[in-house]
């Protein structure tokens, strides 16, 4: 037994300093195509937009905009003959409700209990959520806890394209939660259905079943993006739009 204690002590602190300080380690995020880029010609922009298999890139003239809600990090636009510029960063979470209203009435800006529901996720999103509970991200230090029962949960964290078979369990979990309660959709599948929906088997996003308060794009969203979403929920970080403007300083 003692050897484990010694081993644990010798390992030291591995946790990221985020949100106090931006995380600068390599490989913590796949990045996203630049939200907006200028192209020399409209045809060049259109050619770049066509390289996206999920229609996340849109053009208006020489301007190319990227919709993070649709992007699945297939890297195809980045590897073509005219690559679209990519940005790092991970503060991608966005609120869907009115911008100025607090997400929780009061007293919810500290600790949150989270019930994770898998609504057909590919396991990568769940794996990244699990990372939050592990030493490198260690969300306990921020007062964020996973709970096995929705009875104790403040936040329902849903991943996956919302398969039809999981609709009823998800609704039951939502019903079982005490109010005030919030729903957070994690991953491109949960936002738009991505490659899987809407179809006969999935509803194409959590929003068609439950009111979503915070969306975290990404396929899968890196742990720091999910953490950002949770902090946003408890009003502990700035709104994502502002955050995104300061991405240059925040991320490598």
């Amino acid at each position: 037994m003692s050897k484990w204690i010694i081993q644990g002590l010798r390992t030291g602190v591995k946790s990221t300093r985020y949100p106090r300080r931006p995380e600068e380690a390599a490989g913590v995020t796949p990045g996203l195509p630049a939200a907006e880029s200028r192209w020399p010609s409209p045809s060049g922009a259109e050619g770049a937009a066509l390289s996206c298999p999920v229609g996340a890139l849109e053009t208006s003239g020489t301007r190319l905009t990227a919709d993070p809600r649709r992007c699945i990090h297939c890297l195809r636009c980045a590897s073509g003959p005219n690559p679209v510029p990519w940005e790092g960063g991970y503060e991608w979470a966005r609120r869907t409700g009115p911008a100025d209203s607090p997400l929780f009435d009061r007293g919810f800006d500290h600790s949150l209990h989270i019930r994770v529901v898998d609504a057909g996720a590919c396991d990568a999103c769940l794996s990244e959520i699990k990372q939050l509970n592990k030493p490198y991200y260690n969300m306990h230090r921020l007062g964020l806890f996973l709970t096995p029962t929705p009875r104790h949960a403040d936040v329902l964290l849903v991943a996956g394209p919302m398969t039809q078979a999981m609709r009823m369990p998800l609704l039951k979990a939502y019903e079982a939660m005490p109010t005030p309660r919030r729903v957070m959709a994690v991953g491109t599948c949960a936002l738009t259905g991505c490659l899987f929906g809407p179809s006969f088997a999935s509803a194409g996003g959590v929003g068609s079943v439950l009111p979503v308060d915070v969306e975290v794009p990404g396929c899968p969203p890196p742990p720091l993006a999910i953490l950002h979403g949770l902090l946003l929920l408890s009003s502990r970080v700035k709104k994502s739009d502002e955050a995104r403007e300061t991405l240059g300083e925040a991320a490598p």
């Binding site: 796949p30 990090h73 794996s127 990244e128």
Partner: peptide, 14 residues
């Protein structure tokens, strides 16, 4: 992180 730094995606998509 090695995957993310080496290939650009943590789960080696794409």
């Amino acid at each position: 992180r090695l995957a993310g730094a080496w290939a650009g995606h943590r789960y080696l998509y794409g």
